[in-house]
Amino acid sequence: MNLEEIKSEIETNVPGCRLEIIPNGSPSGQHSLLVDADHAFAAAAYLRDAPNRQFDYCSNATGIDWPIKEVSTKVKTKKIVDGVEKDVDEVVKTQTGGYLEVVYHLFSVELRQGPLVLRMRTEDRAERIHLPSLTPLWRSAEYQEREIFDLYGVMFDGHPDLRRLLMWEGFEDHPMRRDYVDPDDYEYEPTAHDEVLKRAQAHVAAEGGR
C-alpha cells in the first residue's frame, strides 16, 4: 500500500482536497494521511467506495489533544555585532500544536489491506472544533465519535446522535484533554505521592494542620 499513490488518487477524484502525508518516526512505519476538514467526508467516501481501495472497515477512531507547545531550536545566523560579522546561535521559538486531532484506522476486509491512518485536525482547541462525522460512512465510528466528543470535545457535524458516551449528562469538561483539572474531591490517602500529595498537603494546611 503506497500512501503517495492513494494521495494522488484522492486528489484527482476529490477536487480541491488538500492532503498531507504525516511521516511516522517509529519502526512501525505506519505513516498517515492528513485530510482537510472540508473535503474529509468526500475523501473518506472515495476510500470506502473506490473498487481498488474498498476500505470498508473502520476499525479504530480516536482523538488526540495537542496543546500549544513552544519548541525552541537553535539556529546559526550571521549577525553584525559591534561592526564585526559573527556566527551567533539564535534561539528560534516555534509554536506547534494547538489543535485537536481525530485519527481513523481504516482496513479493507475485502482486499485484506490496511491500516490506512486518516487524520483530521480542528482549527483550534476552544471555538472552532468542528469536524465532519464519518459515521454515515462507517457505522463503527458512531460510539467512538461520541467518545471523542465526550472526552476531547470535538464536535462532529453530521453525527446522528452526538451525546456523551462515558461521562454523565451535565458533565462540563472534557477529561482527556491535556489541561484538564481534576475536581477537588480530597480524601485522605495513606500513601500519597506527587500531585495527590500536594493536594493533600494543601488540604491539611487549609484545615489548620493536623
Binding site: P190, T191, A192, H193, D194, V196
Partner: peptide, 11 residues
Amino acid sequence: CEKECPPKCIY
C-alpha cells in the same frame, strides 16, 4: 519500587 508501583501504593 515506590516510583515504579503503578497505583502508587508504596510509601
